[in-house]
Design a protein around this nucleic acid. Structure first.
Lengths: 218, 218
DNA sequence: ATTGCTAATCTTGTATACAAAATCGCTTGA
DNA sequence: TCAAGCGATTTTGTATACAAGATTAGCAAT
């Protein structure tokens, strides 16, 4: 599938916002961006509109588009929705998962465990995402799966830091085990509660999240 | 807040897709639309991209954009997600709702009831939406509220027909009562289950949904 | 007659030109 | 000194022009 320049620019801009090149509230100048990417304003505008739809920037008519990083409150809200959506996936998956689907889940979990051993945060992050993606898939609801992937992607830059917390990786693994066990027992409610705990930001996790958020705000 | 032409065109196109002027799979020609709205291709393209993001059309690079009406399966999936999202709202609202929020809910319910008396389907539809919107708000999670409103809007054209079913309006009202009672008792789980039943498409409702879907497919 | 190739046409994607609106800065008056 | 008004400049929104890829029709060859 061919990609248009506008698509590439949208992805690049997304990256630039995520990695803090563009800070919160900053105005994104169309001509500057056009020069930066060596294109005309047209594809830049298309890219900006896509970002506006996904919520990374806010577009004020006849004023321009401004970077809009979610604050602590909104971030907490997004994580809560993520937790609830994943809980729904887990509950549905508990009764709908196929044999091969369950095998995939076990496999993904094994791979996570192997990575925990060598304390490779980056790889764990990737394998963890795979584990969750399988759960979405096994909800048996394609639309739900897509929505989960969308939100997961949106929260991605904010989850990276979470695993750096000492002992978090091991704890995460333990929670995975609980989830898998509940699904194996076809106990939807228990699986839902387990993953809700796993994803939601509470107590210490909240502290670390906002702590990591601070630098970007300054 | 001022609106650009592209925004208006997007809304108009959305309506034209919803009311069946553009059928499933049909290609939307940029120049034709530009002529139709008496504008250039630029705002038309912007509008089409917005529709593509919200899933009403699919955009194939260098081919064009095509109307994409969800089939029965996807529609069912979307309703399932809607039911689950609203269930989350209800569960959270049960413990978070404020006194005035609960009063709003009761008020909305009263207005629904008044409309049932006169069998005004269209007005009931509107008041019903208000009832649900209040529930979203009372979840205490703005992000969740927005997501619910988004999906509600997306499913709007498919819910219109549901109320025409004989006796559905009265049943819907009864379900509202159950939901309100559960929230009043701060019983989150019961409220969640009640609204899940209320929204989800099962049994007869499924039948009516696909029956109403048929004409658009032909 | 059918299939494959080529060329003409059409459509999308991008660049540029133009119009309208908003911001900025200056001047002028109290 | 400060505020308000007015003009210049900047910036967004839209139209048009141009380029590149896709579709289609016609022609030729087997």
């Amino acid at each position: 599938m061919e990609r248009r320049r506008a698509d590439c620019i949208a992805d690049d801009l997304e990256g630039l916002i995520f990695d803090g090149t563009f800070t919160d509230g900053e105005r994104l100048d169309e001509v500057q961006l056009a020069n930066r990417f060596s294109v005309s304003r047209t594809p830049v505008r298309e890219a900006l509109q896509r970002l506006a739809q996904s919520g990374l920037v806010v577009q004020i008519p006849r004023r321009g588009v401004f970077v809009r990083q979610p604050g602590p409150v909104e971030l907490l809200e997004m994580f809560e929705v993520m937790a609830e959506l994943e809980a729904v996936c887990a509950r549905l998956a508990a009764s709908r998962i196929s044999d091969e689907g369950f095998k995939d889940l076990l496999d993904a979990n094994r791979r996570c465990k192997a990575v925990v051993e060598v304390q490779d945060i980056f790889t764990y992050y990737r394998e963890n995402e795979r584990f969750h993606a399988i759960l979405y898939r096994q909800s048996g609801n394609t639309f739900l799966e897509q929505e989960c992937l969308r939100l997961q992607r949106r929260l991605q830059p904010f989850r990276r830091g979470q695993l750096r917390v000492r002992g978090r990786m091991a704890q995460s693994m333990a929670e995975h085990e609980t989830i898998v066990a509940a699904i194996d027992a076809a106990d939807g409610e228990r699986a839902a509660e387990a993953i809700r705990q796993h994803v939601s930001v509470q107590g210490e996790k909240f502290h670390h999240l906002v702590a990591r958020l601070k630098p970007a705000a300054e």
